[in-house]
Design a protein around this nucleic acid. Structure first.
Lengths: 125, 125, 125, 125
DNA sequence: GTGGTCTAGACCACC
DNA sequence: GTGGTCTAGACCACA
């Protein structure tokens, strides 16, 4: 796996796992790879994976069973969606709307650009 | 002035100055405060202001006249708007559209939230 | 059975068995389930049950008859009570009193909370 | 500083700092020692102190100012007291009351033991 | 100077 | 085997 420089590796891995849970690549209630295993797979130090897992655990997405490993929680997909939605509406949207106002961009103009982006992106898949 | 922890203070100050130029609080072609002056006013290390001014200068928003100080360029407001527009359409909008798609947010929902934000923000001014 | 993460599973099971002996769910001098049986019932590794039984045996609460199984000792209930009382007065109570002092909690406030707990817990049975 | 084995060193240091804030040894809104400084003072690795500070920051007891250091929050003492009280009443007290019930200890008996403990402890100071 | 993150390697309790 | 914690040492961005 390759990493960007803008966010910590641990958080990028946590995001990546969330994504995999959302699209079903990792199943609800299944065991996820052990710390050491995933560390080896991703070419990263086990401590880094520990921090990823700690982050996910603090968000109630995974849980630990002593001496056995980490498991995906029952409502993990719901939890992830709620968490992302609240981040979107409370953090990203206000900044975005502020920019629109400053730059004098109308909602119609925005809609046009977004649908252009979406159609382009869907054709690639 | 209070600072967030997600962005460097120098860049936050540069943004703040840009905004003040856009809304006319700082006039075109006027002299802006000296590094030391602004540093004192903002309770920040002069080195930090230096980096803010360097950032603005590299974007052709202000210019330095040796021994006199920094001045706002003639087309500063236009430059700022162009710079922000390109950032908006090339960086922020794609991320935003991607999030919308992932979270399955409709245009109607988006418009509702944005207009709510705008009306709230306009009442405050 | 569900387990907390703060204490080892083996000790939690030992506590659970003690509790069941105290309230009569497991009778004095009766045979308790075999290691494998209890392990299956609790969804736990047999090694873990082994450690629970070893703990109880070291406290003279159960005894092993080779090839037959583990049996509850004659004075098990008395032994458990004594063990818990000494733990209570020598370990838990001092910490508890120390906390009360630190947090400036009065006896009246304490009594109120304890009786609330007791009445709630009695209604459930 | 010497450490017990029952709790992680990082958490023991966080508790220690909380205590020092409560009793005024560390003042509200003051800067606390830098990570490296405290690490040297306590004979511990800087990473360990980092975890202590992260814990305190997540509890809104201290805050970070970029490139300068950590500072004690305005209401830190209040926050610490509230946090400890909620832990006391929600975690420790129920376990304690449960033990009292099992061991058939009356509130009068409890009060007697606690006041004995307190008087003994106060004479020592 | 400050914190933040990461690696490498160790040791522990627990299952 | 599992996670949890700690050390030692490095590098980075930021003030």
């Amino acid at each position: 796996m390759e990493f960007k420089n803008s966010k910590s590796i641990a958080l990028q891995i946590a995001d990546n796992l969330s994504e995999r849970i959302l699209n079903g690549a990792i199943e609800i209630e299944s065991k996820i790879p052990s710390v050491r295993e995933l560390a080896a797979e991703m070419g990263v130090n086990p401590n880094t994976i520990m921090r990823s897992y700690a982050e996910l655990q603090s968000r109630n997405i995974i849980s630990n069973q002593r001496g056995i490993g980490y498991f995906v929680n029952e409502d993990a997909d719901k939890t992830i969606r709620e968490w992302r939605k609240s981040e979107f509406f409370e953090l990203q949207l206000p900044q975005f709307a502020h920019q629109m106002q400053l730059l004098d961009i109308s909602f119609d103009e925005l809609e046009k650009h977004i649908s252009k982006y979406l159609s382009k992106h869907n054709n690639e898949n």
